[in-house]
Simulated assay, not measured.
Amino acid sequence: MDLPARSIAIARTLITCPSVTPAGAEAFDAVEALLRPAGFAVERPVFTEDGTPAVENLFAKLGTGGPHLTFAGHLDVVPPGETARWTHGPFAAEIAGDDLIGRGAVDMKGAVAAFIAAALDYAEAHGGVHGGVLPGTISFLLTGDEEGPSINGTVKLLDWCRARGERFDAALVGEPTNAATLGDTIKIGRRGSLSGTVTVRGVQGHVAYPERADNPIPALVRLLPALLDPPLDAGTPHFAPSNLELVSVDVGNPSWNVIPAEAQARFNIRYNDLWTPETLAAELARRLATAAAAAGLPVPALAFERVSGGVFLTAPDGRLVEALTAAVGEITGVTPELGTGGGTSDARFIKDYCPVVEFGLVGTTMHQIDERVPLAELGALARLYRRFLDHFFRA
């Protein structure tokens, strides 16, 4: 079976596993059945934490020497939604015309299948299946909760690997990074994400007696512009300007005749490499304090509620990026953009262990009804990953 056909067959097998977060054993069984006969050592640790579902994960490794390249991804998928709206069953893995349809086809069982096919082909070419010596180590870090809380998955799997003495030299995450055409974007970094709440407290009272109350809403409205103007920065060579978005302004007041006791605004910032969570917190606190003093208002409370991964950048001139860029050019004829936009992924955890990039399929149908991947694109991704292995281990 040639490489594109092999990747399609593996993708269909994975899609038929209805692995809505947290992924069940069936999906991991399928991966183990592919990797173990090829000589990969496969382990499937389960991690737990109070208040969260137990999550199965998989670590598989072939080889012992360096460099050590790991392919990271997830086998869990988002719910299919209204199955009656699918033209084919979301877990049927049907081929319709030139497309493979099914939940996870793009995000990200297609990429997992393509990398498995490429790794098996590479191992066979170098005698790894028959006890030969690879010019390095190939491994897989696969989790079952990336689409969910991400508590018992990649974070704990990485800690588990470190405790066992595993060291990674580079990682590729198979998220669907490409915007329109396979090869148009390699993600070499991600912006950080920081969420917070501004709270202005007043005195609750009857609207007919405003002199006995202190309405916090006008004060909040006067202070919020300080968070937005001036802009946080103008961007850097590899990152867009940091962006603060107000996502909620609320007083929790269902009554028409009550002045509320407090008003809150919630926000999220996607920030670049000019900032850390600590420096951002200090800057926002300074802005609010300055605005409050100018308006003769008390300084509002400012609390940060969630840090979802820090900003990171993988060197664009390093072994990992150069090997992947070369493979993209040779297989697709495209010179990829080295981007850092978009949301977060498990790369935000992996970057603390080794250089990491993200590269997968075109993401236009991920999470949608009739999620699909063109067969030609899936086959091309497998060939691209295979070429990447050649470049990475020869570099």
Rank of each mutant, 00 (worst) to 15 (best):
M1T: 12
R6G: 05
S7N: 00
S7H: 05
A9S: 13
T13Q: 14
I15W: 02
P18A: 11
S19R: 00
S19T: 05
T21G: 02
T21Q: 06
G24T: 05
E56C: 11
N57I: 06
N57V: 11
A60G: 09
K61Q: 15
L62A: 11
T70I: 14
P79D: 01
A84S: 15
H88F: 12
H88I: 10
D99Q: 13
L100Y: 04
I101H: 08
V106L: 08
D107W: 05
K109I: 11
K109P: 08
A119R: 07
L120P: 04
A123R: 02
G136C: 04
T143C: 13
S150V: 14
L157C: 01
G165D: 05
R167L: 13
T177I: 08
N178L: 08
L182H: 03
L182M: 08
I188C: 00
G196V: 12
T199F: 06
R201I: 10
R201E: 13
V203W: 01
V207I: 11
E211P: 06
E211V: 12
N215F: 06
R222Q: 15
L228H: 12
P230E: 10
P230A: 02
D233W: 07
G235H: 10
P237D: 10
A240Y: 10
P241L: 12
P241F: 10
N243C: 13
S248D: 15
S248Y: 04
P254Y: 01
W256E: 14
W256M: 13
A263H: 08
Q264P: 01
I269S: 04
R270Q: 00
R270H: 09
L274M: 11
L280D: 05
A285H: 08
A285I: 02
R286W: 12
L288Q: 12
A289N: 11
A291N: 07
A294T: 15
A295I: 05
V299I: 14
P300I: 09
E305H: 13
D317V: 10
G318D: 15
V328I: 15
V334R: 14
P336Q: 10
R348K: 15
E371M: 03
E371R: 05
V373P: 00
E377M: 10
R387D: 00
